[in-house]
Write a protein that binds this DNA or RNA. Structure first.
Lengths: 123, 123
DNA sequence: CATGTGTTATAGTGCAACTATAACACAGGA
DNA sequence: TCCTGTGTTATAGTTGCACTATAACACATG
């Protein structure tokens, strides 16, 4: 799996890395136990600084997607707290759906999009 | 409808204003044609600077939620481009659902959350 | 003419993002 | 034992955004 940075994007580089890895896990490009490239290697291959990668990895660690250690490197390791995770998702969904609702996107259309997205990932 | 700023929040003030107004439109606290407080009045009532409000209003204008003019002030005025709006929503949903999917939140649970949120707003 | 809109200009402070070096602590292999 | 590769920490510098502060402008209304 390649991590590619869009230097023109408004999104911070470390957020781009974070999102791509989350998407990678969701699409099974990365699986529990897989080892991510080291901060130095990923930084070099992406043409950015080591600390920017480190920041992304720390974010992923704090969000419970990976574990970090000097021995094993950055390893995919999901820590789920169903209660909390659903709360977070709901809070973020609220704003997103509000935007759509203002633009007359119906509940049914949202359900449709959810189906489409799960179909893409489940492939 | 009151706009309240959480100065402890990590979210930028102008984003907080933007989100609260979008939520306000979605919940019908604001309706098409309603006039928002002027940049100066809202700034004063929220205890912030005029330009910060102006930035939020310009964002809302660019996103097609309000119109701005010296005559009429800031007026709720939805500009919808269904094609584009659905594309945007889908792109944002993708990342959000990917996060949930990694944490084992099922498609059915997502559909459930969507129902809950629409029930809250529609209420 | 005074008032109230949004708009623009200028300027300053504070902080986040990003980069650049360097060194450290620790584990594994030669 | 020494070298290498992990993540981690420290220091420091540049850039740009968020926010504030004044001030003035263009325009419409009463």
């Amino acid at each position: 799996m390649f991590i590619e940075i869009d230097f023109e994007s408004e999104e911070a580089i470390y957020i781009q890395i974070r999102n791509q890895i989350v998407m990678g896990i969701a699409t099974s490009a990365f699986r529990e136990g897989d080892v991510l490239p080291s901060v130095r290697r990923l930084a070099e291959s992406a043409g950015i600084n080591m600390h920017t990668v480190n920041k992304a990895y720390n974010m992923l660690k704090n969000e419970g997607f990976i574990s970090l250690s000097r021995r094993h490197g950055a390893v995919i390791s999901i820590e789920a707290d169903k209660q909390q995770d659903i709360m977070n998702l709901k809070e973020n969904l609220r704003i997103l759906l509000a935007e759509g609702y203002c633009k007359n996107i119906s509940k049914e259309e949202v359900h449709g999009l959810v189906e489409e997205i799960f179909a893409e990932c489940g492939e």
